[in-house]
Amino acid sequence: MSHRRRQVTYSSHPNHAARAAHARGSREFRTYDTSYIRPKQSKAPMVVALALALLAVIVGALFLMRSCAGPELLAEGEQAQVVVEQGESARDVGNSLAEARLVASSQEFVDAVSRQNADASIIPGTYTFSGGVTVDEILRTLQAGPAFAGALSVPEGLRLSEIAARVQEVTGGRVTAEAFTQAASDASAYAADYAFLEGAGENSLEGFLFPKTYDVPADATAESVVRMMLDQFATETASLDWSYPESQGLSLYDALKLASIVEKESTGDEGIRARVASVFYNRLTTEGDPSYGLLQSDATTAYEVGHDPTPEEVHADTPYSTYAHAGLPPTPICSPGLACLQAVCAPDADALGRDYFFYFDAEGNYSFSATYDEHMSSFS
C-alpha cells in the first residue's frame, strides 16, 4: 500500500500577517531595478531612421539649390552649334541658345537684346559657341555674323568634279573633294527637301549645283555646301516657266540636261543662247530630217572622255555620244547658268520657225542655217 505525499501549499485562508507580507513583497518587486536582467533592445532602427531623415534633408536642399541656380550650362571646352534662320525673333534665337545650354533661359537673351536694342542687327547663319561664353559675347558674335572660310566662286559651265576641287581649296582641305563628291553623288538623298530633284533619281547632282559666289562658313560640311547650292538653284529658278520644254515632252531634268549642253555650246548674250537652244530643239523634234533626234554635240562626249574629243570618240557607241544615240545624254554635263536655263524655257521662235539645224561660231560671230550646204558655206 502506497502513501500519497501531501503537497504543502499556502493556506487558502491566509491570516493578516501573511497578507501584509505579500503586499510588501509585491511593492518591493515593482520598484526593483530589473534592467540588468531584461533583454537588450537594438538601436539600429533608430540609427537608420535618423540617417534616412538626414539624407532626405540633404537631397531636398540640393534640389532646392539646383532649382534656384537654373539649368546646367555647357561646360568650358564643350561646343554647341546654333543655327539662326532668316526672320527669327530674339525669342526664337533665345530658345535655340537655351536648348544648346549656352544661356540659362530664353528670357536672359531676350533681355540682353532689349537692353542693347539689337533685335534688328542679328545676322542669320550657323554659329559655333564654346561653353562659358557670356550672353553679351554671344550677342556680339551674332551681330558680327558667322565666320567664313572664304568665298567659293562657281562660274557657269563647271562640272561636279571641278566644283569639288574648288570646295576643297576654299576650305583649306577641311572639306575634301572626295567628301563633297560623295555628298553630291545621289540626288535622291535630297529629293524630299527639293522637289525639282524628283526626275534625277539616284544620279548625281551634276547640273543642280548652281553657279554663283558663295560665302562658305568656317564650320561648313560637304552636305551643308551642297544644300547651300541647291537652295540657290531653287531661288534662281523659282520664276522660270517650264511650259515650253514640257510641251516638247521634256521633264525639268531633261530641260536641265539641254541647258547644260547650251551652256557648253554657246557664248554671248541671251539672244544667242536662245537661238542655239532652238537649234537643238529642232534636232530633237523635227521628224523627217536625216539627223532627227540626234543632238550631235561634241560637248557631251567631251564630258565623258575629259578632253576635246576626236571624231572617232564623238561617233563611238558610248552613253554620252549624241552622234550615236538619239535624244539627251544620261545626265547634265555641267552646271548651266540662269541665261541658258531661260534659253531652254524660251527658245528663239524665229529660229524654230526657220528650222535652223546648224550654227557656226566664228569667235562669237554666230551663223545659223537650215541646211548642211548652207552650214558648210559658212566656212568659206
Rank of each mutant, 00 (worst) to 15 (best):
E137V: 02
F360G: 07
P245G: 07
L73W: 00
A80V: 00
A61V: 14
G60W: 04
C345V: 07
T176S: 15
T371P: 06
W242N: 07
E246G: 06
A69D: 13
G364P: 10
V59A: 15
F129S: 00
V167A: 03
A100R: 01
S266P: 05
W242H: 08
T34H: 12
P347G: 07
F129A: 01
W242S: 09
Q296S: 02
R174E: 15
D317Q: 08
D241E: 07
P14K: 11
G337Y: 03
T322M: 02
S377A: 13
I333N: 11
A192K: 12
I261L: 10
D289A: 14
I272S: 03
D361G: 10
A370V: 05
A218V: 04
A17W: 13
S130F: 01
I58R: 10
R5K: 14
Y10G: 13
A164C: 07
E265N: 09
E169T: 12
S239E: 13
G207M: 08
N203P: 04
L50M: 15
M376G: 02
L284G: 02
A75H: 09
Y292R: 05
W242P: 10
K257E: 07
V47W: 10
I122M: 12
V154S: 05
T331I: 04
D241L: 05
R4K: 12
S26G: 11
A17F: 14
L230F: 02
N15M: 12
K40D: 09
D215H: 07
S297F: 00
D215S: 15
V279S: 06
M376E: 13
V279Q: 06
T237S: 14
Y323K: 02
Q116C: 02
D298Y: 01
E78L: 00
P329Q: 04
F357S: 11
P329W: 03
A164M: 04
L256M: 15
D136G: 05
D308Q: 08
D92I: 02
A274S: 11
H3E: 14
A274I: 01
L197V: 08
F233N: 09
E99I: 05
M1I: 07
E72L: 08
A104N: 11
E374H: 03
Y292F: 15
A20P: 03
D193V: 03
Q81K: 03
V84G: 00
A17S: 14
A18D: 13
G306C: 02
H325S: 08
T128G: 00
S12I: 05
D119S: 15
N365V: 10
A191T: 12
F368S: 09
S67A: 15
A165H: 02
Y32N: 12
S291K: 08
L55G: 15
R4F: 06
Y372L: 15
Y292P: 04
Y127R: 01
V103I: 14
F63V: 15
E162A: 12
W242V: 11
D373M: 01
A343G: 06
E88H: 13
F148L: 13
Y194D: 12
P245W: 03
Y320G: 11
L338M: 13
S188Q: 10
G271S: 11
V305E: 06
A118S: 12
